[in-house]
Write a protein that binds this DNA or RNA. Structure first.
Lengths: 226, 226
DNA sequence: TGCTTATTGTGATATTTATCACAGGCATAA
DNA sequence: TTATGCCTGTGATAAATATCACAATAAGCA
């Protein structure tokens, strides 16, 4: 693994782009870059959140992992910070984050990060911006899950992978049926059933984990109506 | 309504307490204090969010108000900011906020608020702290609602009013059965049924909107298990 | 006061969803 | 190869929940 040079990093967050060369040197000294393979745990629930995690590249799932009630909250795609609310709102991580693809993550020193907030208003503002947008996403996500029924939520998830993650109408699901069901708040059986149903209606084409959106408009309608 | 003097305000937020006298003068010049009666709309969904709202006193409900899918997201109690994520993450309010009791709200100039974030790191940090805590609350809230069944969610709501809002075991519900159901993600009928069931089991005492917690431990168990 | 409207409780029924059961597919490792 | 452990699809059934229907009460208001 090569030396980390934050100054020359091409994946800087909006906040980090406001930092001066000197500040970036400071960031670098407390920064550890780590790579993760699919299935590896990036952030472990209930561990002390002493570092800010910045997902530089890759795809990961954010999930609440209690023995009895595992639940995938959302899928996150680089570049993004993960777990900022835990960093600031609590001493321990409120959830786990697990890699779905190869991920490259920078763990930043929390104290240095706080220092930037105190000393660089532009940096602080950009963090507030990112947190605000994330919260609104969660808000709508939560709303959707509580108001739609299973078919609509699975349609939602498929559209999410299409629009937010892969940005093209044909892709390979990065998760199993079990996890897809969990993400949509249902069981693997129902997730599977809904996918075949949408397939049979010609709205999507499913082959294993490969998905192709055939009738986006209709899928959108299903997502919205129920 | 008397003159607003932010400097002498006894209800300052943690963030506002970091401001200097001069800064408080600046806050004051762009501040409008308004009182609301129960049922009055404090923040209107889809309106431009040009002001930061600070709930100085009172109780309010945060709800998504689409014609077809009304949903109460949470109940907020002063003192707290409401709608910060909309202020920063979007130009329009993503939800409505409606007073449940008499509420006193300060509407602050967004530009001045942003200026403090840029110029006063302590202020910015406190805002990040409040946003982080709120997000974690929402996170757990969302998780609960998706994993418990109706009885547990209603028990949850009752405990919420007890612990977070009134802080005593006997209180008067500030909302109708319809709204209680909506808050807990169910119908008014089921909300009503669960309350009578808990009443018959001697766990709570219900009389109209008056609630008394008789067996907190058991209620807690119901909230956790189901 | 009487009228109108909102709120509430409760039973019966329909709908939705989870659970259970089972079989085939597919990968990995002994 | 066989054995093992996931993952998957699908039907049958059970459980949870929403919807509908109706009555009673409470609250607002002219």
């Amino acid at each position: 693994m090569g030396k980390i040079i934050c100054k020359q990093c091409d994946f800087k967050s909006a906040a980090a782009r406001t930092l001066s060369e000197m500040e970036l040197d400071g960031l670098e000294s407390g920064c550890a870059k780590t790579n993760f393979k699919p299935g590896e745990i990036i952030i472990k629930q209930n561990a002390l959140s002493t570092n800010v995690a910045y997902l530089k590249s890759g795809l990961a799932k954010v999930h609440f992992s209690d023995p009895m009630k595992e639940r995938i909250m959302r899928i996150v795609k680089a570049p993004t910070y993960v777990g900022l609310p835990s960093n600031f709102g609590n001493k321990v991580n409120q959830f786990s984050v697990t890699a779905l693809e190869n991920c490259s993550v920078c763990f930043l020193d929390l104290a240095a990060f706080k220092k930037f907030i105190f000393e660089n208003g532009d940096f602080a503002y950009n963090i507030i911006l990112e947190m605000s947008k994330n919260e609104l996403k969660n808000f709508h996500n939560c709303l959707n899950n509580s108001q739609k029924q299973t078919t609509g939520r699975i349609a939602d998830a498929v559209l999410f992978f299409y629009k937010e993650i892969y940005e093209r109408p044909a892709f390979t699901l990065p998760i199993s049926r079990h996890d897809l069901g969990n993400l949509a708040g249902t069981t693997r059986e129902n997730a599977s059933r809904v996918l075949t149903q949408l397939h049979n209606e010609g709205i999507i084409r499913i082959s294993g984990k490969k998905v192709a959106i055939l009738n986006e408009k209709l899928l959108q309608q299903i997502s919205e109506k129920g």
